[in-house]
Design a protein around this nucleic acid. Structure first.
Lengths: 197, 197
DNA sequence: GCGTGAGTTCACAGATCAGTATACCTCTAA
DNA sequence: TTAGAGGTATACTGATCTGTGAACTCACGC
């Protein structure tokens, strides 16, 4: 991730081309020849920069991870209150979806690499746990009575909205609304629908 | 689907082997040679029975679809009340997960075949819409005030529990509990946390 | 001037992929 | 008895895959 600065111009073009192609068509469906061609670069250069396709896949996922986490953090920082901030990832997701309409790259990577030992699987898995952890931090900061349980609920809602994105349904609005209702009933002293066990 | 009866014994073995391998390792990662070997069958027989790998993939998804829908319907039928039946797919999912611990085959198929024109994409997509439709029917039968909105909420929760299955978390309990709370507040005349728009 | 590193060109290895061809075997039903 | 369906065995095609080898160009900094 910190290697972005010391990456060569051709390396950046390769990573950009790989990003578009992997995300649009799937990782295993895209060959290195196609990536090199789209980057206007020789296959030799690709291998000089990244060593192997697996390493390129990891770089692709880490690049997206960084961009997504930056967006979420900025959205959290822009919130007026800690309570509002708990639902910030849902707001960030709405922004994100406008430029990333083909579902979640990490979920797709988990599907394409079921083996937990595969480096791409680990990156994607860690990304999901990062979000769950963030929800818990935000819930704690908002004085939730049961931050861990609330975080898990929000996490499930978030992933549900993400994974149903390829379908012609507006699930994001549904899940974001429900998330805000859960946050409200779990932080204010109002009547809770459901007190998480 | 109805062709299961007129499938040859070798054909059944092929479909069974393909089912295991596709589900465990991913579809594109498994070649026809491996399937034929695991089925104790010649590649010629595989092609005589299914014509192409794509057709075999479709048969694999349809077989799982049939098994999953049967389980859900049986779970619905075993419920004592219409209100209880609305959450039946979550109960069915708990049973299903004990023998299918590697996530949702349809979500994985959507990730592996992003092209909506691909027959495997269509089968998987239709399966998801079937579940959403079932939720709406169940919600209507339980006298929900807003069955379409409730169904969408339950659907998102269900898919969220499914997609987070590869992670070491018990998201199913969380989403099932929350689902039941939503059903209760949307069918009884109790205080609703949130009235869906 | 001269070396160094980034990039190119292009050929090629070795594997694996989906799918086909040919010839033979065996059981059943007409 | 014989035809045909289901299956086996084996070799093969042609494409595509990841990855490498070796020689070349070019720009920049000492």
């Amino acid at each position: 991730m910190a290697e972005a600065k010391l990456m060569t111009p051709a390396g950046h073009r390769v990573l950009a081309a790989a990003g578009d192609l992997f995300y649009d068509r799937g990782i295993t469906a895209v060959g290195v020849d196609l990536i090199a061609e789209h980057a206007g670069v020789t296959k030799r250069t690709l291998y000089n920069q990244f060593g192997s396709k697996d390493h390129l896949v990891v770089a692709y996922l880490e690049e997206r991870e960084q961009r997504w986490q930056s967006l979420v953090r900025a959205t959290v920082a822009a919130c007026d209150s800690p309570v509002e901030a708990v639902a910030a990832p849902f707001v960030a997701l709405r922004t994100w979806n406008t430029t990333n309409p083909r579902g979640c790259a990490f979920i797709n990577a988990l599907a394409e690499f079921p083996n937990p030992a595969h480096p791409a699987h680990r990156v994607a898995s860690n990304q999901k746990l990062w979000l769950l952890n963030l929800f818990e931090e935000l819930a704690t900061a908002a004085n939730s009575s049961t931050p861990a349980a609330l975080a898990m609920q929000l996490f499930v809602l978030h992933e549900g909205a993400l994974v149903t994105q390829p379908l012609p349904l507006d699930t994001l609005t549904v899940s974001a609304d429900l998330a805000r209702a859960l946050v409200a009933s779990n932080t204010e002293r109002g009547a809770a629908v459901h007190s998480p066990s």
